[in-house]
Structure formats: structure tokens, C-alpha cells
Design a protein around this nucleic acid. Structure first.
Length: 538
RNA sequence: GCGCCGUUAGCUCAGUCGGUAGAGCACCGGCCUUUUAAGCCGAGGGCCGCCGGUUCAAUUCCGGCACGGCGCACCA
């Protein structure tokens, strides 16, 4: 944790470059102390930001206009560039709003303060006070009359032009990535706006935000098809699992009278890591009593259109070179009809499983794409028509979904929807949709199953599946059924993947780019962040 | 879990048909009071990811491992 308090005794010849810089900066910190300056001082007021300066003076074109209009500003931030000219220098100062050039002149600052300035390094946090002008090249610049060093940086920043490009380093040392990689901070600001936008949208419609447990007893860890992480509570000697969804607790709350309720929260799924998956991720789940999944489609369209406009400034969003139009309404695609059409069957034949396996096998044989063939072959091995339909859709349906629009996929078979209400006019399908966008599943929603007897049967089927070796089957949540037995109003509920939504609205190719600290394997020897001077120094 | 690719200075990257390495930026010293990747002069800085094999000699060739990237599988 702690850096060495003394420069290490190692001779110069033996020091790495980083250790050399570290020790040299440590010496400067000591030099500052000897001059009565605490290199880690506090209590300095910072009344202004670079943003306030640029919005007040940015429109004024000449140095005369700027100087006439400029008040005195006191700013603080990190030094990101330092171009020196002996008795003057230009610094690039960054605060929470952005960057501003600071002009340090010996005759303006005074000899003593200028000597202190010379002990500043790239990466240090400084505070400056002065008035603004425009330089010969027209850049709005604060001419410093006072300068204090607030925090000494001991390690060098990455190279200023290319920045950090190694993705591993960017994620492990996100603090550096945020400083030197353009756009990273903005991405996470946009993510914040997405979350706030969702909250505002739902709050305006009478929804209440709640928090439910993330530590689940084994029988509670349902609500999705996924493998949970396991943990243990010592005092209770209790086996626990990290939640894989917020669904079942939120529906308990609907039973309890929270007719419109939502939770934005972290969930964990013990699965692989790739461009679209991080083992911990954030969902918004919301439950709306007396509504149906049809209402949810309209709400979702309105929400996403609003978010796109708020976050990107347009309802058409560019994602990885593809324009995606979020203008409501979004197209709807029936999973069953699409599979039927592609396989040359009728809707009824498909739902009844009549010739379905043969048709899928035939399609697999005729498919040239190796991956799609594998999906179809796998689909043909499923036990029920519903599972075959859902699986076959991945091969024959998903690739045909519109690329320039989000699309609702409807008509999910009951076998793959253990918590969804079955359709009144055809119990083989559910009142459910998934929203697909940019090739990703973005949302999953349905009219909730509120018939406790039906729910019991669905759980029993999940238990059977688990017994047959399905690691992702849900446990039987007895208390949840008990809650339904008290009566849950007809309700529609939806879950949206915040991370994936953030990917799309920030044009990020990987979930890594919208998660501040994505899970990575640990570095074996722990070389990153090791203080110079050997282990005893740390 | 599988396949392909990568790992060289603090950072971004060259390079060595096998003879222990270079550039730019950063850093250090010198000059410079309007710079924009400032400029000029000079000096440092490397277990060439790790382990093993072949070889007189390996950063380079071969094998294994670690970490990462992309794709697949799994999944939201």
C-alpha cells in the first residue's frame, strides 16, 4: 500500500527507468517539504472550473475582448502537458469539465512561485489563479498569477500522443485510461446519463425504485437460466449464491402492493467472458401491475427513443458503422412464424412439432454456414417442440432480424419461458418478447405468470431438468409460489441489460468499454503497481 | 474448453534469414518569456512475458506455460 518513505538505497546503475523517475519525483516532494510546501496538502478552495471559463469567454475572439471580460479564476486539476521556455511555460490543465491552457510567466508569477512551479511534473495536481487572455495562436489561456502544487505524482503518465492502447493495461489501470484515452470518461458519463434517464422515465410514470438482496439462499437463486456464483456466510454457516436476476423478489413486492416497482442492480452469472459478457453486470428490471407485455413494448419503445435522444442527441444511433433507428414503433417478429416460414412448415405444424425435427435436420443439411449448421443440428436434439423452435430461431431467425432497427421477437414457446404467462388463446406460447438490437439480446419481458398452480408445475419441470443435468435450470422457490398464492395482480415485467444498452448508445464494441473494472485474470507475479525498491518497500 | 494472433525501454512501436537490440514520446542535463505532439544540443534507460529444448551461441528456431486480443462454444 505505502510507497517507500526514503529514496531507495539502490545505486543509479541498478534502477529501472520507472524507479528512477519515482525516486526523482520523491526527491522533488522532499524538496517541496523543505520549502514549507506539503506535496499532499489539502483545504484549498477551488471556486471555478475550466468549463465555466470556456463558457464565459470561449465566444470572445480577440485577446483584448477576453482580457476585458475576464474575471479572476481559480482552478485546480492535473497537468497533462508542460511546454517550457526557460522563464515561461504553457501547461495543459484538466479538471472535471475539461482542459484549459495555463500560461506560466516568471515575471507574472514571481521568482519564488516560479521556482516551485519548476518542481512540478506531468501528472501533478496543481491549483492556479489568474485572468484569461488569448495567445498569439488564438487559444484561450489562463495567465497564472498564483500557482500551488496540491498533489505530487510519483509515476509517469503514458505517452501523450498514442496514449494507452494495450487493452489489458487500460482495464487493469483504468485510472490511467481515463486520463489519457480520449472518450473513455465521456463513455462512462453517458452510462451515468442512461441510468439517470431510465430512473427519470420510470419515476415520471409512478414507479418506485427498490433494492432487494444480492445474496440468495440456494432456492432463491432463480429468475433466469444461468449458473450462479457460490459463497458462504460464516456466522449463519449458510450456503449462499449471488443473485442471477432480481425478478422473483420484485414480484414478491408486487404482491406486497408495489404496483410499479423497479430495481437497477448488479447481478452475477458464472459464465464465460467475451465481448458481450462480463460475469457481473447490471440490469434494470421493472414490474407494472395491470399492464401486459403489449404495454411493455410501447413503454420500451418510448424509453429507448428518449434515451437515444438524451444520450446521443439523435434517435438514430451509429453503432460500429451501422445506423440504428430508435424511432418508435419497433418492428415485431414472431419467433414461431419465422421458424415455420424458414422451415417450410405451417405455424400449427411447427407448434405441434409435426415434422419439425425432420425439417430442422433438412435445413441443417442444406445450410452452408458451419456455425448455423451446428446450431440447427443441436436444435434437432431437443426434447420438445418449444425448445427446438427457440433453438432453431437462433439459426434461421436472428440473422434475418433488421440491422437498422431494434426488433421485438414475440411468440416464445412455453418450454423456454418458465416464469411467463401462457397465452390465453394458445397455451403453447407465452405473452413474452425479447428486444434484439445490434445482434444482441437487449431486453426480455413478459406478462407475468401469476397462477400459483401453473407456477408450481413450471418449477417442477425445472427441478426435473436440473436432475437431468441442466446446470442452468431454476431451483424451486417455494416462498415465491407462496407469495403468488396470496395473489399477484396481473402484471407485466421486463429486464434490460444496462451494459449492452450502454454499448449501443456509446458505440462501444466491447462490454469491457462500458464496465469500469471488468473482470480479468490476475497477473501471476503482480508486477503491475509494485513500488520500486523491492518487496519490503510495499 | 477449442482455433488463430500478440507479449521487445515508463508509453507507442520497429528489428534481429541465430552472434544478447533501435526509433518517437516520456525522463535527466543544457539553451529558450506566445507554445499546440513546441524546438535545438547532450546523456541515461532493456531478465526482448516465463520455463525448457536444439545450438559454440537463442530476444530470434522448436516445445510447454502465463496473460491478453479476436472468433467459436456457453450465455444476457
Amino acid at each position: 500500500m505505502s510507497a517507500p518513505t526514503e529514496p531507495t538505497v539502490t545505486t543509479t546503475e541498478e534502477l529501472s527507468k520507472e524507479q528512477e523517475i519515482f525516486n526523482a519525483r520523491l526527491k522533488k516532494a522532499e524538496e517541496l517539504r523543505s520549502r514549507g510546501v506539503n506535496p499532499y496538502g489539502n483545504g484549498y478552495e477551488v471556486p471555478h472550473t475550466t468549463g465555466e471559463v470556456t463558457s464565459a469567454l470561449g465566444a470572445l475572439a480577440t485577446s483584448e475582448e477576453v482580457e476585458k471580460a475576464s474575471g479572476s479564476y481559480t482552478l485546480a486539476g492535473r497537468v497533462l502537458a508542460n511546454r517550457t521556455f526557460g522563464k515561461a511555460a504553457f501547461l495543459k490543465l484538466r479538471d472535471r469539465d475539461g482542459d484549459l491552457q495555463v500560461w506560466v510567466k516568471k515575471d507574472v508569477l514571481g521568482d519564488q512561485a516560479f521556482e516551485l512551479y519548476k518542481l512540478a511534473d506531468l501528472g501533478d495536481i496543481i491549483r492556479v489563479q489568474g485572468t484569461c487572455t488569448r495567445t498569439k495562436t488564438g487559444e484561450l489561456t489562463l495567465l497564472a498569477r498564483e500557482l500551488q502544487l496540491l498533489t505530487k505524482s510519483l509515476r509517469p503518465l503514458p505517452e501523450k500522443w498514442h496514449g494507452l492502447s494495450d487493452i489489458e493495461t487500460r482495464c487493469r489501470q483504468r485510472y490511467l485510461d481515463l486520463i489519457v484515452t480520449p472518450g473513455v470518461k465521456e463513455t462512462f458519463v453517458k452510462r451515468f446519463k442512461i441510468v439517470r434517464g431510465i430512473q427519470r422515465f420510470l419515476d415520471e410514470r409512478g414507479f418506485i425504485e427498490v433494492e432487494t438482496p444480492t445474496l440468495h439462499k440456494p432456492e432463491e437463486a432463480g429468475g433466469a437460466a444461468a449458473r450462479p456464483f457460490q459463497t458462504h456466510h460464516n456466522a449463519l454457516d449458510l450456503e449462499l449464491k449471488l443473485r442471477i436476476a432480481t425478478e422473483l423478489h420484485l414480484k414478491r413486492l408486487v404482491v406486497g402492493g408495489f404496483d410499479r416497482v423497479y430495481e437497477i442492480g448488479r447481478i452475477w452469472r458464472n459464465e464465460g467472458i467475451d465481448r458481450r459478457h462480463n460475469p457481473e453486470f447490471t440490469t434494470i428490471e421493472f414490474y407494472w401491475a395491470y399492464a401486459t407485455y403489449e404495454d411493455l413494448m410501447r413503454l420500451t419503445e418510448g424509453m429507448l427513443e428518449t434515451l437515444a435522444r438524451e444520450v446521443t442527441g439523435s434517435t438514430t444511433v451509429s453503432f460500429q458503422g451501422q445506423a440504428i433507428d430508435f424511432t418508435a414503433p419497433f418492428p415485431r417478429v414472431s419467433m414461431v412464424d419465422q421458424v415455420a416460414k424458414q422451415l417450410g412448415l405451417s405455424r400449427e405444424e411447427t407448434l405441434a412439432g409435426k415434422g419439425l425435427k425432420e425439417a430442422i435436420a433438412k435445413a441443417a443439411a442444406g445450410e452452408t454456414d458451419r456455425e448455423l449448421t451446428a446450431i440447427l443440428e443441436h436444435a434437432a436434439t431437443k426434447a420438445t417442440a418449444g425448445e427446438m423452435i427457440a433453438r432453431a430461431f437462433e439459426a434461421v431467425g436472428e440473422p434475418k432480424l433488421p440491422k437498422d432497427r431494434p426488433a421485438f421477437v414475440t411468440d416464445f414457446p412455453i418450454e423456454v419461458s418458465p416464469l411467463a404467462r401462457k397465452r390465453d388463446c394458445d397455451p403453447r406460447v407465452t405473452d413474452r418478447f425479447e428486444l434484439f438490437c445490434a445482434g444482441m439480446e437487449l431486453a426480455n419481458a413478459f406478462s407475468e405468470l401469476n397462477d400459483p398452480l401453473d407456477q408450481r408445475q413450471r418449477f417442477e419441470r425445472q427441478v426435473e431438468l436440473a436432475r437431468e443435468g441442466d446446470a442452468e435450470a431454476m431451483p424451486y422457490d417455494e416462498d415465491f409460489v407462496r407469495a403468488l398464492e396470496h395473489g399477484m395482480p396481473p402484471t407485466a415485467g421486463e429486464g434490460i441489460g444496462i451494459d449492452r444498452l450502454a454499448m449501443i448508445l456509446t458505440d462501444s464494441a466491447s462490454i469491457r468499454d462500458v464496465v469500469l473494472f471488468p473482470l480479468l485474470r490476475p497477473v501471476p507475479k503482480g508486477t503491475a503497481g509494485k513500488p520500486p525498491g523491492g518487496d519490503q518497500a510495499g
